[in-house]
Computed example of a mutant assay.
Amino acid sequence: MHVTESPFLHSAKQVIAIEQAAIGSLSDRLGNEFVQACEILLRCSGKVVVSGMGKSGHVGNKIAATLASTGTPAFFMHPGEANHGDLGMLSPNDVLLAISNSGETYELLNLLPVVKRLNVPVIAMTNSNSSSLGQHADVVLDISVEKEACSLGLAPTSSTTTTLVLGDALAIALLDARGFTSDDFALSHPGGSLGRKLLLKVGDLMLIGDDVPLVPTHATVTEALLEISRKGLGMTGVIDKNSQLVGIFTDGDLRRILDAKVDIHATEVDQVMTRGGKTTRAQELAVEALNLMENHKISALMVVDEHHHPVGAFNMHMLLKAGVL
């Protein structure tokens, strides 16, 4: 039996198809103008001031935020407010990124005489080089679309999508050119899970001192189990006479020896432990330790120094509590 597609789904799929086509066309048009825009932005010793009215302004706000968080100092300036005093935000060392689909937005055009007097470069995102904004810009980035996704052809949809994508392209091209790293990114995202994942180190959350589960190689399995129970990490490190970590004994190891009917009271732990085992360093990022644990399907890690002496331990629960997981 034929099932008629919901009008909602039909409409949504049409919108997505139209906007996909618009982005594809944008990619095909990228050329020397994009390179020139990137070079201007890279040379900028001040800030990138993004400006636009209406929907272009909303998109511009996001573009400014993306630039700022990826190594290009930027902020959004509302052109209406700029006409009434906020243009003082602009300095001669800045670059103006002006967004107007039509290129005829009065509030933006009204700023140009002052912008030009300050000798501030203007990068325009507009649908026409011949528009008023396009004619007065140093570089024009084409955001034209064949049609808006709005069935009435009125609401900015495809055009705002291409503008947003082009803004992301600028931000990431500049990020790559600057050699911007995850550590740099973390400095501008100290709050929330991004900051915690990128800044928190193993040494910030590991157990230390007497809280670290450790037994000597000659300890019995029973003694190792008592240490695991006391420290609550589901494992214990095993150290030799030089206090170097030589292995790990875990709940999983216990299950295996119980299946083999090993005498846990008489057997020494070094006979049944996992030799070596995965370890990390206190200076490693917590997110890197998390990746190690996930890749090897383990729930706890010993932390060692450069001489392979155990200095700490932690588990998945501690990563979760710290907001890394």
Rank of each mutant, 00 (worst) to 15 (best):
K278R: 07
G52I: 15
A37V: 00
S56K: 11
P79F: 08
S243L: 01
A68G: 13
H10T: 03
E81P: 15
A68C: 12
T267A: 11
V238M: 08
L292H: 01
Q36F: 12
V50A: 06
N61G: 13
L258M: 00
S182K: 09
P156C: 10
L200W: 11
V115Q: 04
S102R: 11
Q14Y: 07
S188F: 15
L254P: 04
E104M: 10
M302H: 06
L67W: 10
Q244I: 03
A155L: 08
Y106L: 15
G52E: 12
Q283P: 03
V48A: 08
H308Q: 10
A149I: 00
L199N: 15
G323Q: 09
L254A: 07
D211V: 11
L245C: 05
I248Y: 08
D253C: 07
K261Y: 13
R275M: 06
L30Y: 03
D210E: 15
L133K: 01
L207Y: 14
G153Q: 00
L154M: 13
V15I: 04
I248N: 06
A68P: 15
L226G: 09
A124S: 14
I264P: 12
G232W: 04
K297P: 13
T70Y: 08
T162K: 03
E306H: 12
G153L: 04
G247L: 05
